[in-house]
């Protein structure tokens, strides 16, 4: 479950072999906890963006950011405050259903803006893309049923436009 102790760190890193290992290894050896991590190339093929949700109980955020910044492959790093950023996450879940609860599950997913992706004789696979909180809600509700498998992607985030004023350059990281 997400909590107020979680902070988002977004880093632009060189798109090179082993960079993710360097980032993850730093967290491990300094005793910082990763809550979730998402990584993919950006529009610039030389760069990837890593979005890490960290548990700041494990270390002061400043220290985490400074240590990450020391990695040669980390080009830029910043913290995104929850109120200054847009966060999204995707959840996929397969739920065991019989004829009695099938429609209940479908209704819950629909009410939260999700969709049914696949229907089997004994199972449903559903998706929800949204804020981490809405995913938490769905996950909580689905616990009343038999969850066969669940996978969340971890958060991705970008700064909110209003938090950056009219300066488009403030939005460009690197």
């Amino acid at each position: 479950m997400t909590s107020a102790k979680h902070h988002i760190v977004t880093a632009l890193v060189e798109n090179k072999a082993g960079v993710l290992a360097r980032v993850a290894g730093l967290f491990a050896r300094r005793g910082y906890n990763i809550f979730s991590l998402a990584v993919a190339p950006t529009h610039d093929p030389k760069l990837s963006r890593i979005t890490i949700v960290v548990d700041v109980d494990s270390a002061p955020l400043d220290q985490i950011v400074h240590q990450l910044d020391k990695l040669i492959n980390v080009v830029e790093i910043r913290e995104l405050g929850p109120s200054d950023s847009l966060e999204r996450e995707l959840l996929l879940a397969t739920i065991a259903v019989d004829s009695q609860v099938r429609s209940e599950v479908i209704q819950i997913v629909a009410a939260l803006g999700g969709a049914v992706l696949d229907v089997g004789v004994q199972c449903l696979t559903v998706e929800l893309a949204g804020t981490p909180e809405s995913l938490d809600t769905l996950e909580e509700l689905l616990r009343s049923y038999e969850i066969v498998a669940i996978q969340r992607t971890g958060r991705v985030a970008l700064p909110k436009l209003r938090s950056t004023g009219s300066q488009i350059d403030n939005l460009r990281i690197a």
């Binding site: 290992a21 050896r29 040669i72």
Partner: peptide, 13 residues
């Protein structure tokens, strides 16, 4: 390079 990742400023293969 894996072994020395945490005890070098950087390493290269």
């Amino acid at each position: 390079t894996g072994i020395t990742m945490g005890i070098t400023k950087h390493n290269w293969l």
